[in-house]
Amino acid sequence: MQTPIETTSSPPHWVVKLAPIEATPESFRGFGQVIEAAPDGDEFGPNDAQLDLTHGIPRFYIMHIEDRPLKFSTITHHASVTQCLGSIGGHVWYLGVVKPSIVDPVDTKGTMGADVVESHCGHFYVPPAVEDVRVFRISGSKFVKLNHGTWHAGPLFEPHAMDFYNLELTNTNVVDHTTHNFTKKNNVLFVIDEYSTPPN
Rank of each mutant, 00 (worst) to 15 (best):
M1I: 07
M1S: 11
Q2N: 11
I5C: 11
T7I: 14
T8V: 15
S9N: 15
S9A: 13
V15Q: 14
V16E: 04
A19S: 14
F28S: 00
R29F: 12
G30I: 03
G32S: 10
V34F: 13
I35P: 03
A37N: 09
D40L: 14
G41M: 07
G41T: 09
E43D: 14
F44W: 15
P46M: 06
N47R: 13
N47E: 14
D48H: 10
A49Y: 08
A49N: 03
T54H: 10
I57K: 09
P58A: 04
R59S: 14
Y61P: 05
Y61G: 07
I62T: 07
M63W: 11
E66D: 06
R68E: 02
P69K: 07
L70F: 10
K71V: 05
F72D: 01
S73Y: 06
T74N: 02
I75C: 06
T76G: 04
A79M: 05
A79C: 08
S80K: 14
S80H: 13
S80C: 06
Q83C: 08
Q83E: 15
G86P: 03
G90I: 01
G90P: 02
V92M: 07
V92E: 14
W93C: 02
K99N: 10
K99D: 05
S101K: 03
V103L: 09
V103A: 08
P105W: 04
V106N: 12
V106F: 06
T108C: 11
T108E: 13
G110K: 05
G110F: 12
M112R: 10
G113R: 07
G113L: 09
D115L: 05
V116Q: 01
V117Q: 07
S119Y: 04
S119K: 10
H120V: 06
H123R: 08
H123F: 15
Y125C: 09
V126G: 11
V126L: 15
V126P: 01
P127S: 13
D132Q: 10
D132F: 05
V135C: 13
R137W: 02
I138A: 04
S139M: 06
G140P: 08
S141N: 12
S141T: 15
K142D: 00
K142T: 09
K142P: 00
V144E: 02
K145L: 15
K145S: 12
K145E: 13
K145R: 15
W151K: 11
H152A: 13
A153K: 02
G154H: 02
G154D: 01
F157H: 09
E158W: 00
H160C: 06
F164V: 00
F164W: 08
Y165F: 15
Y165A: 07
L167F: 10
L169T: 06
L169W: 09
N171P: 01
N171S: 12
T172Q: 04
N173K: 07
V175D: 14
V175R: 06
V175K: 01
H177K: 03
N181G: 05
T183D: 08
K184N: 14
K184E: 15
K185A: 13
K185F: 11
N186K: 14
N187F: 02
V188E: 11
F190D: 01
V191P: 03
I192D: 05
E194D: 08
Y195F: 11
S196L: 08
T197N: 04
T197C: 08
T197W: 04
P198D: 09
